[in-house]
Design a binder for these strands. Structure first.
Lengths: 344, 344
DNA sequence: GTTAGAAATGTAAGCGCTTACATTACTCTA
DNA sequence: TAGAGTAATGTAAGCGCTTACATTTCTAAC
């Protein structure tokens, strides 16, 4: 904090520009922020001075004086999940189109870290926040409210909750997929999931499977569950564990494609044919899903559109005019080779 | 800019905390920034006030007064390329370990946008920048120098250039791979590449192939080149185009795995067996490379390590003590099924 | 040529924080 | 217990910008 060397060359400030253009700092500021309030000749002179000096406004000072930053923040669990990378990319593109800048942070799926980052982004002057999933300490929501920083939840949708959200029906989509699995005659289904304690998307998807079990006349409690962190290798390990604990399993439903790809690989290594010996499904429909051999049956989610529309909603929300409605995006099932009839 | 509604509840400031703890603002500031300079009892009282009020420092004001932000910036071409996502994730983790925050922007491979983002990040007070590849307007480097913002180039390495960098020998690695291709008897090689005009990594990789051609007694000018933007689908199209224009091709070397996966897919669609009818290689060794069928021969690059070490280097660089040396990371070739002997 | 009204510009008061410097309160030593 | 030295705290001057308000300059209708 204290070993900062002095800047060699002093950075031009608004005052420098004003001096060079022989106007007041107020006029320079207006030139930059609302050019039509300034006379044409003056404006040209000022702009020339800006160019000559290579002036760039100091963001901190600007934020301090103006009380808002045109900056939005987003906190995602991890960059390495292409699902978020894709959604955020679209989010950013759309924001850029409206002259907003995006600050991204990733929480590595750790609640405490996310909390810290929310505060950091707010301190940095984020005008609004994009968060993933509902699950978090209510105090955080209060904090945001007290700072009047609007916040949009993405990747989850639940009409019960009052937070504005854009997402899809995780439970419903998974239930629909599970229904197809049961229709293929599977009776011993296992689930490989991300840790459900702090991940409502994963939890809802598991719930979806259980709901479908009930509908199919099975006992939801019989669902074999393996929790594991995100990652292909973890998916591999999880499948091995699942089959060791529940060898009668004929179908494994994974809560995301990455885990499913890992499971697929483990199945191959164990000499099991997919789908003849075991069926495997995913969720998200990332690119690998179609490329895998056999191609993965999964739930397609419109990540890109979600990101794009999230930007629009959040921009509305900072305007504080009429309240913004949550939106539920449709998902659809992509039936591919990794799901087949149960071995008899 | 002007339609900001007033904050409903006023946000606590340093002065509020000071008042509540019955100390001066200086003491509160010290409590937050260098706690050991403050007496124990006072510190506890101040911290209590901070907690009571839910105080969070205003970043803009802090940056304005302190002249540095503990914030680093990174500009990557795209989030959707998992190579960058992985590297940046590691970069961020390491920065976090040192109490630094990361601001990420993506330029969508557009030079003008990148330039804008450099300025935006600097205006935001970034203490240092991570940039990908050397290629950019020299004025930008001057700008950074004039602001004394250190900048590290990643994913490229070239001892000729004076910018500090961490990367690998793109040309050398690709040449090594090409050598193996020629050893398999291939004489008609094509290259599918990202646009080389503004992407020095792609350019160097193509150069590497040509260097190997020379060494193998072939004319580098005979290399068939197809340029295409990033993306699996573009890889598909590019392979079709390549084979239409140069049907004698027996091996296609792609400058990254994503294009190679696309090429692989197109080959399948065209009824070509890989590698019996055509060999295909990639670069990066992303996860799909090993998962593809046939598995992709490619150059393995230590993206994660690069990100991690980049963080360390940049932290050194902002300290302005001794100059930081560029580092070249080793790459190695992963021979897998997509490369085979040339069809006779 | 006036003069009212609009348009352009200037003045100056903060925004919330850090930190050099000044002041006060302690802790020892002899 | 005085005096020196150190630790703890306070004072106040900015950091670079925006913007309400005051002032000046222009436009045009009479």
């Amino acid at each position: 904090m204290m070993d900062q060397p002095p800047r060699e060359i002093s950075i031009p400030t608004l005052a420098d520009v004003a001096r060079r253009a022989a106007v007041s700092t107020a006029t320079v500021s207006r030139c930059l922020n609302s050019p039509d309030q300034v006379g044409k000749k003056t404006r040209e002179r000022v702009m020339q001075a800006v160019a000559d000096l290579g002036y760039a406004p100091n963001f901190g000072a600007r934020a301090l004086a103006a009380k808002h930053t045109n900056t939005f923040g987003a906190i995602i669990p991890t960059m390495e999940n292409s699902v978020f990378a894709r959604g955020i990319q679209a989010f950013q593109e759309e924001l850029g189109r409206h002259g907003k800048t995006l600050l991204i942070a990733s929480s590595a799926y750790q609640e405490a870290l996310e909390e810290e980052q929310v505060r950091a982004l707010v301190a940095r002057g984020a005008d609004a926040l994009l968060l993933i999933g509902f699950h978090r300490d209510p105090k955080l929501y209060e904090f945001l409210k007290s700072r009047s920083v609007p916040c949009l939840i993405a990747w989850s949708y639940d009409e019960q909750l009052k937070q504005t959200a854009i997402g899809f029906d995780n439970a419903g989509a998974m239930a629909a997929l599970a229904k197809l699995v049961f229709q293929q005659g599977h009776r011993h289904v296992a689930c490989i999931t991300a840790p459900i304690a702090s991940n409502d998307r994963a939890r809802d998807r598991v719930l979806g499977v259980q709901r479908a079990m009930k509908a199919a006349g099975l006992n939801p409690k019989d669902l074999h569950l393996t929790q594991t962190p995100y990652g292909i290798e973890n998916g591999e390990t999880a499948l091995r564990k699942t089959l060791a604990e529940a060898p009668e399993t004929t179908a494994v439903m994974c809560v995301n494609d990455v885990l499913a790809i890992g499971a697929l690989r483990a199945a191959k290594e164990l000499g099991l044919r997919v789908p003849q010996d075991i069926s495997i499904t995913g969720f998200d429909d990332i690119e690998i899903a179609m490329l895998a051999e056999p191609a993965l049956t999964t739930v397609h989610v419109p990540h890109h559109e979600m990101g794009r529309r999230a930007a629009g909603m959040l921009i509305q929300m900072v305007k504080h005019t009429e309240p913004v409605q949550s939106v539920e995006l449709p998902t659809d099932i992509r039936l591919r080779q990794s799901l087949g009839p149960a071995a008899s």
